[in-house]
Design a protein around this nucleic acid. Sequence first.
DNA 1: AAATATACTTACTAATAAGTAAGATGATGT
DNA 2: ACATCATCTTACTTATTAGTAAGTATATTT
Lengths: 186, 186
Amino acid sequence: MSVTREKIIELGENLIRTKGYNAFSYQDISTELGIKNAAVHYYFPSKENLGTSIIKTNIQRFEEMIDNMHSRKFDEWQQLETFIKIYIKSHREQKLCLVGSLGPDINTLSNTTKAELVKMTEIIHHWLAGILTSGKMNNIFSFNDEPQNKATLIFSCLVASLQLSRIIDKFDYKAVCQSIIEDLKP
Amino acid sequence: MSVTREKIIELGENLIRTKGYNAFSYQDISTELGIKNAAVHYYFPSKENLGTSIIKTNIQRFEEMIDNMHSRKFDEWQQLETFIKIYIKSHREQKLCLVGSLGPDINTLSNTTKAELVKMTEIIHHWLAGILTSGKMNNIFSFNDEPQNKATLIFSCLVASLQLSRIIDKFDYKAVCQSIIEDLKP
DNA sequence: AAATATACTTACTAATAAGTAAGATGATGT
DNA sequence: ACATCATCTTACTTATTAGTAAGTATATTT
C-alpha cells in the first residue's frame, strides 16, 4: 500500500483528534505532507471517504490488538490495563480518542461514516462488556452492576476524562484510571 | 433585553449541542429566525462573541440554579439529583451538554471563548467536588476516592454517556445515572 | 417637529472549503 | 520501443463561510 495514503490516514486521524472533524481540511493535510490538495483527493475522493477510512483503520487496529492479547493468553486484568494504556497515551499526547472526537459531530457525518463510527463504538463497548462479564465470573473483577452498564460507565469515564483534561489544568488522568481499576478489585 | 437576542442565544446553544460549534453557521440561525444573516451580526459581531455569550449565559443559569437550591435548603442528595436531572433532560432531547460539545473543539476556539469554557467547566467541577466533600463529611455519601477525583469520575460519566447514547442505540441513560447514585449510597 | 437610537435589510467582500478535469512525470511491464 | 499504470500537479469551479458598509423603517426622546 502507498506510503502517502498511510500518511494521510495518520495525519487525518490526528487532526480529528486534536481539532475535530469539521475543523480540519484537505489543505491541512496537503500542506503538512508537502503535496497538493488534489493529491489527497486522488487517494480519498471525498472527506466522507477519508473519515470512513480512518475509522475502518482504527477498527482493524483494535481487532489486531485483541487478537494479539488472546494469542498471548492475557487475563482480564491484563486486557483492561492494555486498553487503559491507550487512553493514558492519548492523554499524554493531548489528544482525544476517535469516539470522543467524532461522537459530538455525529449529526454532521454522512450515513456511511456514521455507520462506521457506530460499528467501532459498539465493537469496543461489546468487548469491554465481554471481559467484564468473564472477569466477574472468574472472580477476578468485583462489581454489582450489569456488565453492559459497567462497561458504559468505564468507557464514558475514559472518553470524557480525555476531554476534561484538556479543559481543566492540574488534571490527574492517572488517578482517574487508578480509580477505575481500584473499583473493580475484589 | 431584546427578544431576538435571546432567541439567537438559545438557538445557538441548541445548534452547538446538536451539530457542534464548527458545523453551525450564522445562516442556520438567521434562516430559523426568519431574519437576515447581518441581523445576527448586529447582536453578535463575531461568532467568537456569540460563542462566549452562550457560555456566559450558561454559567449564569448554573449559578442561579445553585443559589436556588441553597435558598431552598437542599441537602447533598437533592442537589446531586437536580444536577443529574439536567443530563437526563439533555438525553431525552438527544443533545449533549455544552462542556461535552465544546470540549472536543477547544483547540479551534478563540482565547476568550476558551477562557469562558474553562471557567464554566471549573465552576461545575468545583461545585460537584464541594457537595461530595460535604456529603461525605455528613455521612450522606460514601466513597473512598478524593472528592476532587470522584467529581471528575461522575462528571465524565454524565458528559460522555450523552455522547455515547447518540451513537449506541438501546442505551439506558437512566441506568447509568442510577449507578452513579447507588455507588454513593452508604 | 427634529433628532436619535433600535432593529433590522440590502448588497457586498474576501477567504476558505470540497471537489474535478486534464495533463505531466516516471516507473514497470510487454 | 511502446503502452500502461500509479502518482501526482495545474488550474479550475462552485458553494459556503464570517464579516462589513451603507441604507431603511419604526419607535422614542428632546
